[in-house]
Each structure stands twice: as C-alpha cells, then as structure tokens.
Amino acid sequence: MYTSLFYKEWIKARKLLLLLLVVFAAAVAYTLLTTIKQFHANPVAFWEFIVENNSIRTGYMRYLPLGAGILLAIVQLTPEMHNRRLKLTLHLPLDESKILCSMSGFGLALLSGLFILSGTALLLGLRIYFCPEIVYSDFIASLPWWMGGFTAYLLTVWICLEPVWKQRIFNAIPALCCISLFYTKALPGAYVPLLPWLTVLMTAGFFFPFYSAIRFKHGVQ
C-alpha cells in the first residue's frame, strides 16, 4: 500500500524532480566554475576574502532549496486539493495519519536526495581546491538554507492542505516569518548557535499539515 502511495506521489512529482535536478546541477557547476575562476584570477584577493570571512562565497545556491521545497509541495498538494481529490486519497483503506505521513515523507525523501546529491557534489568539488576546514565551515554556513528548504516544504504543505482560502493567507504570514529566520543575512558561521533551534522549528513543521487535514476532514468552510 505504501508503495502505491509513493507511486502516486512519484507520478505527480517526477517532472519537477527532473527540472530540479537540472537546475541544481547547473547551480553546482556555476558555483564551482565561478569559484575556480576567482581562485585563478586573483589568488591573493581570493584567499584574503576566505581568511577574513571564513567562507568561499557559495551563495549562488542560497534560495534554491527554498524554491525546491515550495515547488515540490505545490506540485504534490495542488492536484489533491483541486476538486477536493484529497477525499479520494483519505478514503483509501489505510490510516489517515499514515497516508499524510507517507505523502510528506515522500517529499522530504525527494528533497533529501536532491540536497544530499547537490550538496555532496558541491563539497567534493570545493575539496579539490580547499582544505577540509574551509569546506566544512562553508557547509555549516549553508546548512540553514538547506534546512529552510525542508521547512518551506512542510509549511507549504500546511498552507496547501488548508481548505479555506482566507485561512491559507493567514497561514502564509507566520510561515513567511518562520522561513525568513533561515535566510537572515549574517556573517558566515553566525548561525551555528541557532542551528538547534532551527532544527526544532523544522521538526515542528512536520506536524502542521495534520492541523489542516483535520480542518479538511471537518469540512471547515
């Protein structure tokens, strides 16, 4: 049964996944090529920047996880809410919370795969030129962006599942505030003390869609 649920999500998301793979691959390639270009163009200035900022300027990827999370949630949930097809999904002979977990779980797994793949490619590419300490520091600095992608996905699922349009707008406001926490401009590494709190926020996001689903089940209009 779970295989079947994942199959349904796969049919909805596969084209977007292909698009995201291309975009992320292009972004990784662009980031690496730009870094290499800067490295060779003016090595002294480049190293000076790294030493001063403790970062390699991989900011081209900054908003990609966010976009991926939002788009994936929309692609998965919009067909379910159109004509209230979610009724058909929730009518399947399986516990409703398990159905919702499977749908969100599929999206999170897809995003994880995409983020791990592109993140690993980026870090391995950088590792050719930079020592592990610098690459690790860059990874930690970019971690909130990746976490923001997961959180944006979960909060968009929450908004999409909400049955009332007006309430969707009300939901979008705290969601935007919450997501903006992951993208506040700060010196690289300044986020490190906040990472546990951002993890809590991201984890809490998993439970939000259940509230919308309960409202949908109660026929709130």
Partner: peptide, 23 residues
C-alpha cells in the same frame, strides 16, 4: 465524487495499478 472526480494526473493503466494494491 460529484463530477466523477478522480486522480486526473494518472493514465488509465496507472490509476488501476495505483488502486489495485489497496484492495
């Protein structure tokens, strides 16, 4: 459902394959 709503992103074979595993 009203209007014969179904999961319209499936094709004829896919929707049969999808539902068959639940019953």
């Amino acid at each position: 459902l009203e209007g014969h709503v179904q999961h319209a992103y499936f094709n004829i074979e896919q929707i049969e394959k999808f539902y068959s595993r639940f019953f």
